[in-house]
């Protein structure tokens, strides 16, 4: 016997919160996969730090979603007992770690967005989301600094690091558009000042990204086709494997407390 999926009552605010929680959990999980295997000990520390920040964000957001939903779900039920079609994270964040360049470019693309997002969300009319935003913004500002420094080092380092960094940008670029999309259920939240319209973050995001990429002697792709689907549970094949590992214990031992 294995533990069954929970059902989630995805009201707009629950869905909105779960999407951000899933972003943080999935990227935090990916970063935690590096632990013990990073290119240098200092980077083992840094990747774990960022992973811990994201796990902390995920836990706060899940707990808030559970309170808003009010149906007996909690952070662990959201994390461990939803399947791939119920996850709402960005496709970018479930992409495998690949080499260090791939991990850092993924981090850089997302952190640059997240920093702008959380800074704007500090003004949310929802006091819990505003408080989570205030904490998360400080963390994401560090993630931007750390990852952008690496983009420059890798891009302007050796021929090999330049090649790997450029490949990472080319491979991940198509997943960046999804960050700025809004769905109908979010409209009401945006009008109420609870959520922000991510489309407004696109220009400042592109400016930071372009500046760093230029300094790194790298280039952004001209291809502007963007993948979508994560927000509605249409994921890449990678997420299922991540979840089967992440969820193995609670799925194998239903109802146990750890």
């Amino acid at each position: 016997m294995t533990a069954a999926n929970i059902t989630v009552s995805e009201t707009p605010l629950v869905l909105y919160t779960l999407r951000r929680a899933d972003d943080a959990l999935i990227l935090g999980h990916r970063l935690s996969e590096w632990c013990g295997h990073a290119p240098m000990l200092e980077e083992d520390m840094a990747l774990a730090n960022m992973g811990l920040d994201l796990l902390g964000q995920a836990r706060e957001l899940y707990s808030y979603a559970a309170r808003v939903e009010g149906r007996g779900n909690d952070e662990d039920k959201f994390a461990y007992l939803r399947d791939v079609r119920q996850y709402r994270n960005l496709l970018l964040l479930e992409q495998p770690n690949g080499d260090f360049a791939r991990t850092m470019v993924r981090q850089f693309f997302y952190a640059t967005f997240a920093d702008l997002f959380w800074r704007a969300m500090m003004h949310s009319s929802d006091p819990t989301l505003a408080a989570i935003a205030a904490k998360s913004e400080k963390e994401s500002a560090y993630h931007v600094r750390h990852s952008s420094e690496w983009i420059v080092r890798l891009g302007d380092g050796t021929e090999e690091s330049h090649r790997r960094a450029q490949e990472a940008i080319d491979e991940l670029w198509a997943f960046t558009g999804e960050m700025f999309e809004t769905c109908d259920s979010e409209r009401g939240l945006i009008d109420a000042g609870i959520a922000i319209d991510p489309a407004t973050l696109r220009a400042p995001w592109l400016k930071t990204v372009s500046d760093v990429v230029r300094e790194a002697t790298l280039a952004l792709p001209s291809n502007d086709w963007m993948q979508q689907g994560g927000r509605s549970g249409r994921h890449s094949e990678h997420l299922g494997h991540l979840l089967s590992e992440l969820q193995s214990m609670p799925r194998t031992f239903p109802g146990a407390t750890w």
Binding site: P39, E43, F100, L154, T158, E160, S161
Partner: peptide, 9 residues
């Protein structure tokens, strides 16, 4: 695997 990263830095 990390050698190229350290070299780049």
């Amino acid at each position: 695997d990390g050698a190229w990263v350290r070299d780049a830095a």
